[in-house]
Design a protein around this nucleic acid. Sequence first.
DNA 1: AATCCACTCAACCGCATAATG
DNA 2: ACATTATGCGGTTGAGTGGAT
Length: 285
Amino acid sequence: MGRSPCCDKVGIKKGPWTPEEDILLVSYVQEHGPGNWRLVPTNTGLQRCSKSCRLRWTNYLRPGIKRGNFTPHEEGMIIHLQALLGNKWAAIASYLPQRTDNDVKNYWNTHLKKQLKKFQPAMELPQMAQACLNKTLATASSSTIATYASSTENISRLLQGWMRASPNICSNQSAIILQTQSKDESGGGDLMSNEHFESILWFENMNNVAWEKSACGSTTSIGGFQDSGNDDQFSVEITQEMKQKTGNNSRFYPSFSSLEKWLLDDSCAGQVEEMNQWMELSPIF
DNA sequence: AATCCACTCAACCGCATAATG
DNA sequence: ACATTATGCGGTTGAGTGGAT
């Protein structure tokens, strides 16, 4: 009954990987592709548990991994996403395709957390992140058409609901920004109205439908969205589906990719740098 | 030169969830 | 439906390293 054990628990080697082991693992993955990790120790002769093999591959050997030297843009993204998602390192890392969750987690724990604490020891970290986020939100909402949902609590609920509603989608998570048709409709308040929130909840499900159409497992995907410049087409697809559902009566036409654009678009990096500067200069921090 | 200490990060551990028979 | 294992994720640990004393 059930699956067979992934590997024997006896005679498993632990500790740092040797170059020879790395070569064995890389050769195997190059030939067979990543996955089916329970077969890896057997087929390669590695005295490692399958878990260890997977970890070594995803965190170190996988192609396209960037190591060290996080850019200010990346720092800003991590700070923002941590405020939005909490310690969901895999989700955060999905927005930084060249970084692993382990990397992001380590960087947060060794650098960013300390930095934030240094700026304001009296303030709780989540509050600092919130304050940091709010400041940037204020800047963003006054200077851009797209606006953040102005409460991280709502975003958090939104994400929870989203994940509950979609067991089939990739584990990647994404926050959603409301993009209102007119700025006035956004209200600019700290909390969304029920109507607004329901609109988003509905949009969560909408998003799932469209998301599943995308190449979720694609190596070039970022957070489940293909980084192929098809965002606009994708957004149009969603908007059309939304219009069909709402009979064009919806007050909202949220652009699900706005956050991704905001986070990934280098042209927005200035906001992050501005935030970093603010963090350095602000008496709050 | 030797020792101590703080820091970094690769790797491990344990848990939750998904998958399988 | 249930038991069992695989997989993925977040938290934690500890070896290695470099700077301070």
